[in-house]
Amino acid sequence: MSGVQHRAAVLGSPITHSLSPVLHRAAYAELGLGEWTYERFEVEEAGLAAFLDGLGPGWAGLSLTMPLKRAVIPLLDRVSETAAAVEAVNTVVFTGEGERHGENTDIPGMVAALRERGLGQVPEAAVLGAGATASSALAALARVCPGTVTAYVRSEARAVQMRGWGERLGVHVQTEPWERAAAALTAPLVIATTPAGTADVLAGSVPGRPGTLFDVLYDPWPTPLVAAWERAGGQVVGGLDLLVHQAALQVEQMTGRAPAPLAAMRAAGQAALAARPA
């Protein structure tokens, strides 16, 4: 492979905040892949097809963030069963035959982040929110939670959507209105998938002996809910944990090198976040 350039990148809009270049480049450095580069490109849905069609030889893969995870599906030659289950692709791998294969590393990345903290299985769980990340959370919970998952949502349309995802994924989902979200915090596992600031109001409702909170945010960090959870002695899994594990799987799929260097990637991510303005 020496002397042959291999390119990868993350696409989305907005994209300047993405930590993916930091993580992937750290992996390349640790693995000795000096011929690999990883960039970021601002791409919206309307420009995605043209961007893909304009890629030349040497491209190994792409990471996708919002709003492209669903928009890319009709542009692919194959979509993995995991990605198809939630209609979300966050990884595109280019084959030697020129095909585009879609994968979802968010789901196994979430499972890996939970297992890293000793949560191989939980009896029940709660999910805050009902967006794209919530559907991935349900898919992850299908692997670790045999009991009921209660989703706290803002509208009946979202409730119907989450129950539909549950049926599709084999997860028993019941829904509650967002106004009752404080009740979610008594679950042994709470997965917060809401945008920054949305769950801050729940910080004052953390129980005296909380279980595990998985907050998919990583910037700003800690969130008020996370800070209150830790003060109460609860275990926290963060968005950086998820980001590192899903990126590690991307590195392995794009480069063919495994295992990806998790420790080096996490250290690089932590340093990059620490260097950001408060």
Rank of each mutant, 00 (worst) to 15 (best):
A112Y: 07
L273V: 03
W178Q: 10
A26Q: 02
T37I: 09
Q246V: 11
H245Q: 13
P108I: 05
P207L: 10
V206K: 00
A113S: 15
A142Y: 08
L169V: 10
A46P: 07
L240E: 02
G164H: 10
E39H: 14
S136K: 09
A260E: 06
G211S: 13
A60M: 08
T198M: 15
V216Q: 02
Q174D: 10
L19M: 08
T82C: 14
R276H: 11
L273T: 08
A134P: 04
P259A: 08
E176N: 12
A263R: 14
W221T: 00
A134F: 00
L48P: 02
Q161P: 01
M110V: 05
E39N: 14
R163K: 13
A199R: 04
I191A: 06
V153N: 00
V160N: 02
S18L: 01
A27G: 14
V236T: 15
A71K: 13
W36M: 05
Y152T: 10
P74M: 13
E39S: 15
D219Y: 15
R78Q: 15
D106R: 03
L249P: 00
A187V: 03
R70A: 12
E116Y: 06
P57S: 04
E103N: 07
P146I: 11
L55Y: 01
F94M: 06
E44V: 08
A50T: 12
D219R: 12
A159K: 08
G164M: 10
T148G: 07
F214L: 09
S136P: 09
